[in-house]
Design a protein around this nucleic acid. Structure first.
Lengths: 149, 149
DNA sequence: AAACATAGTTGTAAAATGCAACTATAGGGG
DNA sequence: CCCCTATAGTTGCATTTTACAACTATGTTT
């Protein structure tokens, strides 16, 4: 369990490289959305009745930021906000038709990038990798932030 | 090589959790520095004759940002900027005495966090994990940004 | 010497972020 | 039923981060 390079360094640097790769791919295809937006759309797509507070908890972000991010996604026509019938404070988020379309495109491009980046890595290695990631996430103790799928 | 969760999502989310964990640890110990600053100090410590351009390349950051980040580290008394004798454009960065001290502290706390987060992960799993990370970084094709150590 | 390239700095504007105050609604205990 | 507290969301504001372009100074090439 010794690491010569700090885990934070390792992950942070890798993430930065991967993000650049994805953003380059998006630019190539004239996609104007950011990684953050893709990830938010992904979450909304997977969690049908998600509220903004859910998003804030999951992504460890202030809820004010979530409000604004959702606002821009609504302005872009990709997301709808509907009020909960039982609890009038809550607002549920879901993708519009256009939102589903753009998400499918974003996801396809994301898969392309993933495939490129995982080149030369065996299924076994990848499975182990994902297990380690999962354990790390568990060890952070942020229970609400676990992968949802 | 199938991933149900996009690699970008997986890494990004994990990184966010790990960063929060580290920042919490820093706060506990009344350390006012950020993860970015720790990582910059780490790089300077490892690469004795590094220039600001090297930093910009390594971290995929605009050199103007590097200038300002270094400025604040100099103001804090942790970094020195010395001019290259041969090439007067270049300025080399190195840690001051106080910089080395604070870096050792940051690193120690970083190791604590890493140890907590890697709990329950075998040496073999970790080695494989690091190999996969290394391959991913290679596959991004950003040669200047490889891990340096 | 002229033209171009590189290292670094600075100005400025845009975007992301965090915090606190605020509204509106829900739920619990007296 | 009223009061107190908690939750969901919005808004304002100040701080930080970031990108881009212009600029200076120095080095390199032809």
């Amino acid at each position: 369990m010794k690491t010569q390079v700090p885990l934070t360094y390792l992950l942070g640097q890798t993430m930065k490289l991967v993000r650049h790769k994805l953003m380059a791919k998006y630019k190539e295809n004239n996609i104007e959305l950011t990684l953050e937006q893709f990830v938010v759309l992904h979450y909304i797509n997977q969690n049908s009745a998600s509220t903004q507070q859910d998003l804030a908890n999951h992504f460890l972000r202030d809820k004010s930021i979530v409000t604004r991010q959702i606002n821009t996604l609504i302005d872009l026509g990709y997301v709808m906000r509907t009020q909960d019938d039982d609890d009038k404070r809550k607002k549920h988020l879901q993708l519009t038709k256009a939102g589903i379309e753009i998400f499918e495109l974003l996801k396809a491009k994301s898969v392309e990038v993933s495939t490129e980046l995982l080149d030369g890595i065996s299924q076994e290695e990848l499975t182990n990798f994902e297990n380690v990631i999962a354990k790390i996430q568990l060890n952070t103790g942020f229970k609400d932030c676990l992968m949802c799928c």
